[in-house]
């Protein structure tokens, strides 16, 4: 159970960190606020999940221990969320793919047999619904915008598509929890998620690569080189000055 919660928490933390990197760098001041707002939602979700893991483990840890004192192979986030921000179109595609997955996942998790998780999902779903709305609309704007924005969006889709497979391919942790009714059947969820993606991609006038080879491993701790750099930045202070507060 804690392994699964860490998967959810790490997705939120790492993507939140990536979005936070836009702070002060977004194309418009308004977008700076929008992206960091989403980052804060995600960081808040990660925090609740880490606190729950700490409670279940009962080892006297707190949320910071999980965020700052684990190494890359202990992180269970999907590879998609650790991908670099790239340009704005790249960030939007990464966000849209994740939001589409995250929305249907959390909607299904509200029916989880684990009462805490169902409650957490219901609360987070409101935030995630807005994230999906934000990223979907930007998909349309960029896809339907100028020739340049369309080309950038299409390029981002082609570059990131390899990371979509992992989202709906259950690992052992998820398979075991599906049997217990705690986590939804990802194979079933896949149909809904793909329908949403197809709908938005068609409206944005872009196409997904067919038969792309899919990367995986993030959920079980095999990460791309990017995660190490994220952790180096995120964890530096706690590693160099353990227990530092401000």
């Amino acid at each position: 159970m804690t392994k699964y919660l860490l998967q959810l928490a790490d997705n939120a933390l790492i993507l939140g960190h990536r979005l936070g990197e836009w702070c002060g760098h977004a194309p418009e001041m308004e977008l700076d606020m929008a992206l960091t707002n989403i980052a804060l939602d995600l960081t808040g979700q990660a925090r609740s999940l880490y606190q729950r893991v700490a409670e279940l483990e009962g080892l006297g840890k707190d949320e910071d221990d999980y965020a700052y004192l684990r190494d890359a192979w202990e992180f269970r986030n999907v590879l998609l969320v650790e991908q670099p921000n790239g340009d704005f179109a790249y960030t939007i595609v990464r966000q849209f793919i994740f939001d589409a997955y995250n929305y249907y996942l959390h909607r299904a998790l509200t029916q989880s047999k684990d009462e805490w998780l169902a409650g957490f999902a219901a609360k987070s779903l409101k935030e995630i619904t807005y994230h999906l709305r934000f990223s979907s609309e930007w998909m349309l704007r960029l896809g339907d915008g100028t020739e340049v924005s369309h080309a950038k969006l299409q390029a981002a889709i082609e570059n990131l598509w390899n990371y979509t497979g992992e989202l709906t391919k259950p690992n052992e942790v998820e398979q075991a929890l599906t049997v217990q009714g705690i986590c939804p059947n990802l194979t079933q969820l896949k149909t809904e998620i793909e329908a949403k993606m197809t709908e938005v991609l068609a409206a944005a006038n872009v196409t997904a690569p067919v038969g792309a080879w899919m990367q995986s491993g993030g959920k079980d701790g095999s990460h791309s080189e990017h995660l190490g750099f994220i952790l180096a930045e995120m964890q530096f202070l706690q590693r160099a000055y353990p227990g530092l507060e401000w």
């Binding site: 308004e30 606020m33 707002n37 709305r133 609309e137």
Partner: peptide
């Protein structure tokens, strides 16, 4: 006031700001 390309974006930016 704020800057936005269209009404939908203005609503979203207003929500965030």
């Amino acid at each position: 006031s704020l800057h936005a390309a269209d009404a939908e974006m203005a609503l979203e930016n207003a929500r965030d700001l």
